[in-house]
Nucleic acid binder design. Structure first.
Lengths: 188, 188, 188, 188
DNA sequence: GATGAATGAGTCTTCATTCAT
DNA sequence: AATGAATGAAGACTCATTCAT
């Protein structure tokens, strides 16, 4: 039940936004009453927090599995991480959008638990870039932090336009992105 | 007065979000009464639309001024556009965030006026890439549309993290972004 | 201008009702601004009172012209009065509907001026019936007051259903009503 | 509770009119809060519709009970129907006034449900007149539709002036009305 | 586990009215 | 004679939340 509610909530928050979606909307969509909601959640905000937690924890653990795989080069890891972010849209797109869009509606208390994880995700990319430098995979003359933000921007913005059933496969998009990041777009 | 209201609204919508900001909040912040708001705007949504219009029209015209300047190469134009998006955060950051975040609260009628302009902005970037190919500024082997989305992602995401009074200047950030896009991050 | 405003107001009050029609609606329909309204009327209620006055005064004077005509029998006068009420709908229908429907929105002060006139209209009919009795035009065995209310009901209700451009002429309807009142509907 | 609310609403709508009566007025008069109102009704208009339905359904079923009684002549049925309309004022007067006065505030959707019933009521009277002709109870030389409107006018107008605790009994009034309708007011 | 009834604070919006110009 | 800006009170409606059952 709690599971079902959370899933419906993600769907509705994605479609209509957190503030605009009422508890009534959520419970109606699964055929129970408002009382039931408050049996499982202490507040609307708690539900939102749960959604955030579930998303960022999942994402982080997938990212860490990639980073820990020592059989791969840093370039390959970078590809995997970018690829993951595209692939993930298929099943986590709604959650992702809710995550980035509705974070502001979390309480400070909740934010304190979630922001460090979100930052960790970015920090891991910075770390990957730094380690790739030492190994010679990446150049030495760029600002790691800005480039990390750039990569993140490319990845996160894809939630806004990427349609999983569109013309391009996730492989193609991730490939283009990685190419762009590694080799640039000008002739060499 | 209308001007003043719009500006305050942008500030508040940026800080607290469109739905959470009440008309009361807006009028209180400039010391008038609710009636006054409805003297100038027919609805909260109209105000939001006005904000969107003002932002996208301004952005488009700045972009077009860059694109029309024939004394510059395509690479330089790309730099200027990316640079613009960072510089713009200083004065238009709040509007930009409202633009991307609250578009969903526009009516269909308003969206029909705004979406084409937003798409035009992206389309202009695609065009720049295509023309740069012909001139030899850019390589021929990438997907223009995906790369355009990638560049847009980098630029638009910067609204989320860039602090105009931070350690890096806008020149530096734009420089890093353009370097990254042109030459990539791997050794050549 | 005042004239024009009153006429538009009648039209709108008839169509949408007094409460639902705003001053804004009225002034917009003739292309002036709200200030202008308050130049001519001290309040919305005063306008309503003016409409009531104009209507009941006109009706009363027409009724009195009929009653004073000594060349006609009482039966003929009854016909004329009923006929008048139907004919009047063509040009005064809107005013009449406003009169009966919106009287409740008058202040006590206004009501004190209007109710006596409205009662006078009914009282004149009672007087006609009483005089017709003495002359032998009407029977002696009915309750004058109730019959007067009955006749008034027939007449006033016609505002609700009579369409001036319908199949029956006002002559026909008045004729049927008078026949019904004089001879009844059962075989004699 | 819903019952109680509806009854209070009828009382208030009768006294002050639909538009002027606020939800606040209604809930205050029974000591609950506004939220409670919206727990039972989806809108003010729905409440009005419910009042209309309840009234016209009740009236129609009483009328039909009279019409179906084959032990009575058509003249007796006519008396019963007119009598009913007067008697009814005692308990349904407020509802009746609200019905006729506030119908305009119903939505088109509601009107579509109610107008046919209101028309049915009138149609039943026309039918009674037509059948009474065949049986010889009524004359053949009058316009059935206009006479029906005339009778309806007499009956419905009585809501405006009849005071149940006045000097005349409902029997007397109905008697006068039926006499007037059947035999007319002129000597035979 | 779940419901149904109720709350009360808050939201957007409307509108008659005022008044300086 | 008319306008435009502003007010402020009130209105319908929404919604997260509570709680007895």
């Amino acid at each position: 039940m709690k599971e079902k509610m959370t899933e419906q909530a993600v769907r509705l928050f994605d479609q209509k936004g957190f503030t605009v979606t009422s508890i009534q909307d959520i419970v109606e969509s699964i055929g129970v009453t408002k009382g039931t909601f408050y049996y499982y959640f202490s507040s609307k905000e708690e539900l939102l927090k749960e959604i955030h937690m579930r998303y960022i924890d999942g994402l982080l653990s997938k990212q860490e599995r990639i980073l820990e795989d020592d059989s791969k080069s840093f370039r390959e890891k970078l590809f995997d991480i970018i690829h993951l972010s595209i692939v993930d849209i298929k099943e986590q797109g709604a959650s992702a959008k809710v995550f980035f869009r509705e974070m502001r509606h979390l309480s400070h208390k909740s934010l304190d638990q979630i922001e460090p994880k979100r930052d960790m995700y970015r920090y891991n990319i910075e770390k990957l870039l730094k380690e790739g430098r030492k190994s010679g995979d990446f150049r030495n003359d760029f600002d790691v932090s800005v480039v990390a933000f750039g990569i993140l921007g490319m990845m996160n913005w894809s939630y806004q336009w990427y349609k999983p059933d569109g013309a391009k496969t996730d492989e193609e998009i991730a490939g283009t992105f990685v190419d762009m990041v590694l080799k640039g777009i000008q002739p060499q």
